[in-house]
């Protein structure tokens, strides 16, 4: 009996998890509110993030589109910077695909491995684990960090939006799929996820700049479908999707777009909303106020 309670006590104080953290350019330079709330959340659930030292751009869509060699080496350098023994956590779906694809290629191609070792002057780390932020949610038990989780988000109707995060290229098709993790996690925290059928539709990425009309059409469709399904807000897992849904939506009175990390942090009471919400183009404050969710924040 004593043993059981000891074990129980230990599980209430889980050990600190440590990850190296690759933010990527979108989080680092335009989605500051995403980064801030993500760091806050991790700190709150006893997860330590150490920013990958001197990381570079993953090459984004542009490098692989027009310059294969540059795309290859940009990803390789990031892999070479990852410290040994701790998993590398990537918060941006697109950076994750670039870096992880390259890692898997390196793993099975000895000639490429030689090229890598020659370029960066260190051995290739065969055991490096590269994960998306979603995986952290599989490794921490939110119940250990919060009382009455079900009451936190007050049945806020959310439309979970994954963008292309769920569409893995064939070389990553045996990787874990995270479909449903936003619903599962925020549901546990008291939100009411709705299904709207457009959660995995691409946001248009850079067509938002180069072909705004095409991006606008795609974005409007996503936001409209969420609104028609009765959502009060859309929850995104990617900083670029968030930006595109905000800047390219031309509907009247669109619903606010919240970062997944913002809602997570809010539910855990780790708020510094003054820094996050003024950076939203569609102000989420009236909705949060109406739903009595601003009191979650200090």
């Amino acid at each position: 009996m004593k043993k059981f309670s000891e074990k129980n006590e230990a599980s209430r104080r889980p050990e600190r998890l440590k990850f190296s953290f690759f933010p990527g350019c979108s989080l680092k330079t335009s989605g500051h509110e995403n980064t801030l709330s993500l760091l806050k959340f991790c700190d709150r659930v006893n997860v330590e993030l150490i920013e990958l030292e001197d990381w570079n751009c993953c090459g984004s869509s542009s490098a692989h589109s027009v310059d294969h060699a540059v795309a290859k080496m940009l990803s390789m350098r990031n892999i070479s910077l990852a410290p040994k023994g701790i998993p590398l956590m990537i918060a941006c779906p697109s950076c994750l695909i670039r870096i992880k694809s390259m890692y898997l290629k390196l793993k099975k191609d000895n000639a490429l491995k030689c090229e890598y070792e020659e370029l960066w002057g260190k051995p290739f780390d065969e055991d490096l684990e590269i994960i998306h932020f979603f995986e952290i949610l599989n490794r921490v038990r939110l119940e250990d960090h919060i009382d009455h989780p079900k009451e936190k988000l007050k049945k806020l109707k959310i439309a979970p939006y994954y963008g292309c995060m769920l569409s893995m290229p064939p070389d990553l098709r045996f990787e874990k799929s995270y479909y449903g993790i936003i619903e599962k996690t925020l549901g546990k925290l008291g939100a009411d996820p709705i299904f709207f059928g457009y959660g995995a539709r691409c946001c248009g990425t850079y067509l938002s700049v180069a072909k705004p009309k095409i991006a606008q059409k795609v974005v409007n469709e996503i936001v409209l479908k969420a609104m028609e399904a009765g959502a009060e807000c859309i929850v995104t897992a990617c900083s670029m999707c968030h930006l595109n849904l905000e800047i390219r939506c031309s509907l009247e009175n669109p619903i606010p777009i919240l970062h997944f990390s913002e809602l997570l942090s809010m539910a855990l009471g780790a708020g510094d909303k003054k820094k996050w919400f003024p950076r939203h183009l569609i102000d989420p404050v009236p909705l949060l106020e109406k739903r009595g969710l601003l009191t979650l924040l200090n």
Binding site: T29, S30, S60, A63, K211
Partner: peptide, 20 residues
């Protein structure tokens, strides 16, 4: 679209990261 890609890579070349 090509111009966009070129400009993205130009900033990566200059700073190592994109500068929107």
């Amino acid at each position: 679209i090509l111009s966009f890609h070129t400009e993205v890579l130009n900033t990566v070349k200059k700073y190592g990261r994109t500068h929107k």
